[in-house]
Design a protein around this nucleic acid. Structure first.
Length: 879
DNA sequence: CGATCCCGCCACATT
DNA sequence: AATGTGGCGGGATCG
C-alpha cells in the first residue's frame, strides 16, 4: 500500500496535484480509523486533490499501520526519486484537471518537489478546512511524516506555523489537533490588533518612508521596540485549544516569527511586505549584534514561513520594484477585514452572530470579536456566556485536555480590560502618554487559564498597549503570573496596611485590581503611531472600528466615535510634548468610564481612590460579590460585551467620575479605581492604580522598556476571598528612586499569606519587596533589570515561591508571595479542572517554571469562587 | 550570482 | 538515556 501511495505521490505533479489523503485521523480516538472520510464532503473542495479523494482514503486507511515509517521513508524517497519518472501514469489519472505543462519537470525529485510549500499543501489536503465541530482530528506527527514521506523535522516546520495561526494545536507529544480555519479570522484579527499596536507605526513608517528611514527607524525601534517584541510570543488569545506545553519552552521563534510576519501583513496598508523589511523588523535580538548572519538566518526562516502561508492561501509571492531594484516580497491575499469571522462557513460558529447585546460602538463589536475568538467561553469572571462556543469550545472544553482554551479567552478579556483601563488611565493621566505597558495579573480562578494562558499570549496584547513601543512582553507576562497567585483566595481580609510600604489593602470580594502606572516613555515613538491611529480612527468610523479601536486602544480604547479618538490622540500628543510631565493620572470623567462601570451600570460601581497613603478603601466591600454572577449569565454576557467594548466612552459611571476627581486631586499619588462589579462583571472589580508620579517619566527617559506595571487584575473570584493589597510603585521608599521610573516597572509584589481564613495579597508595584530592586534602585532603573518575579514563599511550607525572570522584560521585577494554607496540594494543571478547586495554590512543583507557576496560580484561584461556578456553568451549558 | 530554502546536525526540553 | 522539538546555518538549486 505504501508503495502505492508513494508511487502516486511521486508522480504527483509538481504542483499540487498530488493526491493526498485527507481522511484519516479525524477521530479523536487515538487510533486511527480508516473511517471514510466524512470530510470529503465537508471540506471545501478547494483542494486540487479532491478528485483523488478515493485514493487518499485508501491510503489513509492503510497508513495507520505503517508504523514503520522509517522504512517507508526510505521507500518513499527511493521510490520517488526513481519512480517519478517512471510512473507518471498515476499522475495522469489524477492530473486530469491540470496538465501541468511541465509535468516533465516533476520527473526528478527536483528540489521543488520537496519544497516545504508543496509539503504543506499535501499536509493541508489531508484535513478539512472546516472540520465539523464534532469531530476532532488528531494529527500524529509520525504518521503524517511517514505518509508524506518526509522527516519529522519538516512537519514541525509546517505545524509550527499552522499552530501560530491556530489551525492546529499541540495536544501532546507527537500529537496535534487539527482545528481548521474556523478560527482563522479571529486569529487574524487578533494578530492584526496586536500588530497594530506593535508594528503599526513601524509599518506605516516603512511604507511611507521607504528604506532610508527604515534603517534609522529600525535602529530606533530596536531601542524601543525590539526588546518588547521578542519575548513573548505574541500569542493571542486563542480559541481553543491551546497547547499547554507550548508556551514555556524556548522561544519557538518560528511560531512567534510567523505571527509577527502575519501581523506585518495585516498592519500593512499595501498588504505587501518585503522580505528584507520583515526580516529587519523581526530581528530582535540584540540590537546591534551581528546582523548579517542573523539577517540571513531570519530570511531563511521567513521563507519557511512564507511557504506555509502561501500554501494556506494567505499570501503570495510578488516582487516589488523599488528604486534599487526588485525585491522579493509577499502580498497578503487572505482576508483583510475581520469584522466577523471570515472564514467560517458555517453559521454555527459562535462568532457569526454578534452578540445581540453588542452592537454599539464599533469598538465594542470588534473587541468582542476579538474576544470572541476566544470565544467567550471562558472567562468566568467575565462570563461571557456565549451560547455558541461551538467549535472551539469543544476542544477546549474537554475536560481531559490539558490545554484549555479558556485561558485565551480569558486573556482576551483581560486584555480588553487592560486596554480599557489603560485608556482611562491614560486619559486620566495627564500624560496621556499612554501607556505604559500594563501588566495584567489575572487571577483567574481556573487553573486552566493559567495553563493555557501563556504569559505570552496575554501579554502580547498587553504589550500592544504600549503602542509604539515594544512592550516588554516578558514583563507583562510575568506579571500576570504573579497575579495569579495573588488571586488565590483568601477569605476576607481585612484590609491591612503595611507600615513601610505603601500598600493598599482591600478586603474585597472579588475584584480586579489594576495597578498601573502610566508612563510615557516612548512618547516619541508613540507619536507616529498616534498619528496613524488618529487618522485611522477618523477614517474608519465604523467599519474598521475594531481595528481602529484596537490600535488606539492599545492605550486607550477609545470609543469608536471619532471624537473620542481625537481626544486620545491629542492626549498622547500632549504627552509627547510633555515628556517630562510626571504621570499624573488625570481622569477625565467622561472618558473615564471604566469598563467596569459600564459593566455595572446598575450596580454602580464604586470606585474609591485614595491617593493618600495608597490606602484604598473598598467601600463596596460588599461587593455584591460574585454571587450575582451566578445568577445571570446572560447579563454577564452582555456585560462582557460591554466590557470588551467598554471602550465605549459613552457610559460614564459615577464612580468613575469620582475617581477621576480624586485622581485629579492627586495626580501623583497612586490612584486606584475600584469598581465593583455588578452583575455580569459582577465579580470583577478593578483597581487601577496610577501611581507613578514622576517616576514614570523617568522611566521613559531611562529607556527602560516602558513598562510600568500598570495594572493588576485580579479575578474577582479569587480575590473575593482575600484582601488585596497594592502598593504603588511610587510610594515605595526604596524604589523611591527618583526615577520611579524604573520603579514603576519594577515590581509588583504579591504576597499571599495563607492565613487561615484570609489571605492578604499584596501587590506592590514598587520594587521594594524585591531585594534587588530596592538596593540599587537607581541603577536598576537604569538598567533594565530583568524583570523578575519573585515569589517568595512567605510561609515555609505552604508557600511556594517562584521566580520568573524574563530577560525580555525590562525589568519589572515582581515579587510574588504566595502563602497558602497547608491544605493546598499541588495540582497538576491538567487535573485542575473542576475538581480540585481548592488545591490551587499548592503547586510547588516547579518553582522556577513560570508556567507552572501560572498553573498553580490558576488553580489557586479557583476555589469555589463564584467565578468558577460560572465557568463551569458556562462551559457546560453550551455543551 | 543572488534568491530560495532543503537538509539534517545538534542543542535543549520532556519523558 | 531516549525521545521529542525545533534553532540554525551550510550549501545545493533555482532562476
Amino acid at each position: 500500500e505504501n508503495i502505492f501511495d508513494q508511487s502516486r505521490m511521486a508522480p504527483k505533479t509538481p504542483i499540487k496535484n498530488e493526491p493526498v489523503d485527507l481522511s484519516k485521523q479525524k477521530g479523536c480516538t487515538p487510533e486511527r480509523n480508516p473511517i471514510t472520510p466524512v470530510k470529503i464532503a465537508d471540506r471545501p473542495q478547494s483542494d486540487p486533490w479532491t478528485p483523488t479523494a478515493n485514493l487518499k482514503m485508501l491510503v489513509s486507511a492503510a497508513s495507520p499501520d505503517m508504523r514503520d515509517r522509517e522504512k517507508k521513508k526510505e521507500l518513499f524517497r527511493a521510490i520517488e526519486n526513481s519512480e517519478q519518472s517512471n510512473t507518471p501514469d498515476s499522475l495522469q489519472y489524477d492530473m486530469v484537471d491540470d496538465n501541468m505543462v511541465d509535468e516533465f519537470e516533476k520527473q526528478r525529485p527536483s528540489r521543488k518537489q520537496k519544497s516545504l510549500g508543496l509539503l504543506c499543501q499535501k499536509f493541508l489536503a489531508r484535513y478539512p478546512s472546516y472540520p465539523l465541530s464534532t469531530e476532532k482530528t488528531t494529527i500524529s506527527l509520525d504518521e503524517v511524516a511517514s505518509i508524506l514521506g518526509v522527516e519529522r523535522r519538516r512537519i514541525y516546520d509546517i505545524v509550527n506555523v499552522l499552530e501560530s495561526l491556530h489551525l492546529v494545536s499541540h495536544v501532546a507529544k507527537n500529537q496535534y489537533c487539527w482545528h481548521g480555519r474556523h478560527n482563522l479570522s479571529q486569529t487574524l484579527k487578533t494578530l492584526q490588533e496586536a500588530g497594530e499596536l506593535q508594528y503599526g507605526e513601524l509599518m506605516a513608517f516603512f511604507q511611507h518612508k521607504e528604506q532610508d528611514l527604515e534603517y534609522k527607524f529600525g535602529e530606533r525601534k530596536k531601542d524601543t521596540i525590539s526588546h518588547s517584541q521578542d519575548r513573548p510570543l505574541l500569542d493571542f488569545p486563542e480559541p481553543d485549544c491551546s497547547s499547554a506545553s507550548a508556551s514555556s519552552r524556548k522561544d519557538k521563534s518560528l511560531r512567534i516569527m510567523s505571527q509577527k510576519f502575519v501581523m506585518l501583513f495585516l498592519v500593512s496598508k499595501t498588504k505587501i511586505v518585503t522580505l528584507d523589511v520583515a526580516a529587519k523588523i523581526l530581528i530582535e535580538e540584540t540590537q546591534d549584534s551581528a546582523d548579517h548572519s542573523k539577517f540571513k538566518t531570519k530570511v531563511r526562516r521567513l521563507y519557511d514561513i512564507a511557504n506555509v502561508l502561501t500554501s494556506l492561501g494567505l499570501i503570495k509571492k510578488v516582487h516589488v520594484t523599488e528604486e534599487r531594484g526588485r525585491k522579493p516580497a509577499f502580498k497578503w491575499i487572505g482576508p483583510v477585514e475581520f469584522p466577523g469571522k471570515t472564514d467560517e462557513p458555517r453559521g454555527h460558529s459562535p462568532t457569526s452572530n454578534p452578540l445581540p447585546g453588542m452592537q454599539r460602538g464599533a469598538c465594542a463589536p470588534h473587541q468582542i470579536r476579538g474576544t470572541g475568538k476566544q470565544r467567550f467561553t471562558r472567562h468566568a469572571s467575565f462570563n461571557i456566556a456565549q451560547p455558541c462556543e461551538g467549535t472551539r469550545r469543544k476542544v477546549s472544553s474537554e475536560p481531559n485536555s490539558p490545554h484549555q482554551k479558556r485561558p485565551d479567552e480569558y486573556r482576551s478579556n483581560m486584555i480588553n480590560l487592560a486596554a480599557v483601563c489603560r485608556q482611562k488611565i491614560a486619559e486620566d493621566t495627564r500624560n496621556p502618554g499612554i501607556a505604559s505597558p500594563l501588566s495584567l495579573l489575572p487571577v483567574p480562578g481556573d487553573s486552566e487559564f493559567c495553563v493555557n494562558t501563556l504569559p505570552q499570549a496575554v501579554f502580547p496584547v498587553v504589550q500592544a498597549d504600549v503602542p509604539s513601543l515594544s512592550l516588554p512582553n516578558g514583563v507583562s507576562s510575568q506579571t500576570l503570573h504573579p497575579s495569579m497567585p495573588a488571586a488565590s483566595k483568601t477569605e476576607n481580609g481585612k484590609p491591612t496596611l503595611l507600615p513601610n510600604q505603601p500598600f493598599l489593602c482591600f478586603p474585597s470580594s472579588s475584584l480586579f485590581m489594576l495597578c498601573g502606572s502610566l508612563q510615557e516613555n516612548n512618547l516619541r515613538e508613540t507619536l507616529p503611531t498616534t498619528g496613524d491611529v488618529g487618522n485611522r480612527s477618523a477614517e474608519a468610523p465604523t467599519a474598521v472600528p475594531p481595528a481602529a479601536c484596537q490600535k488606539r486602544s492599545s492605550q486607550r480604547c477609545t470609543s469608536p466615535s471619532a471624537p473620542v479618538a481625537d481626544e486620545e490622540p491629542a492626549a498622547k500628543r500632549q504627552t509627547m510634548e510633555e515628556s517630562d510631565v510626571p504621570l499624573s493620572l488625570v481622569v477625565p470623567k467622561k472618558s473615564f468610564e471604566s469598563p467596569k462601570a459600564e459593566s455595572t451600570p446598575g450596580s454602580g460601581c464604586t470606585s474609591a481612590v485614595h491617593p493618600e497613603a495608597f490606602h484604598l478603601d473598598l467601600t463596596s466591600p460588599a461587593a455584591p460579590e460574585a454571587a450575582d454572577k451566578d445568577s445571570t449569565k446572560p447579563l454577564d454576557t452582555q456585560e462582557q460585551e460591554k466590557w470588551s467594548q467598554n471602550k465605549d466612552p459613552d457610559e460614564p459611571s459615577p464612580g468613575k467620575e469620582q475617581i477621576s476627581k480624586e485622581n485629579g486631586q492627586q495626580p501623583f499619588l497612586p490612584q486606584y479605581l475600584y469598581v465593583q462589579p455588578t452583575t455580569g462583571l459582577s465579580s470583577c472589580n478593578f483597581l487601577f492604580s496610577a501611581n507613578q508620579a514622576p517616576g514614570s517619566i523617568s522611566l521613559t527617559a531611562s529607556q527602560l522598556p516602558s513598562l510600568s506595571v500598570p495594572y493588576v487584575m485580579v479575578p474577582s473570584a479569587a480575590l473575593a476571598s482575600f484582601p488585596f493589597v497594592c502598593s504603588p510603585t511610587t510610594a515605595s521608599p526604596v524604589s523611591s528612586v527618583p526615577d520611579g521610573s524604573f520603579s514603576a516597572a519594577t515590581s509588583m509584589n504579591f504576597s499571599m499569606s495563607g492565613l487561615a481564613s484570609t489571605t492578604p495579597v499584596f501587590v506592590g508595584t514598587t520594587a521594594v519587596v524585591t531585594p534587588k530592586v530596592s538596593p540599587v534602585p537607581s541603577v536598576d532603573s537604569q538598567q533594565p533589570t530583568h524583570p523578575t518575579l519573585h515569589l517568595s514563599p512567605v510561609l515555609p511550607r505552604s508557600c511556594s515561591a517562584v521566580k520568573l525572570d524574563s530577560p525580555m522584560c525590562m525589568g519589572h521585577p515582581v515579587t510574588l508571595l504566595k502563602l497558602q494554607q497547608a491544605s493546598s496540594a499541588p495540582l497538576t494543571p491538567k487535573n485542575i479542572r473542576p475538581a480540585c478547586h481548592e488545591a490551587f495554590f499548592k503547586t510547588p512543583g516547579s518553582l522556577g517554571d513560570p508556567i507552572t507557576w501560572k498553573k498553580n496560580a490558576g488553580t489557586q484561584t479557583r476555589n469555589a469562587s463564584s467565578v468558577q461556578r460560572r465557568l463551569e456553568i458556562s462551559s457546560t451549558s453550551p455543551d
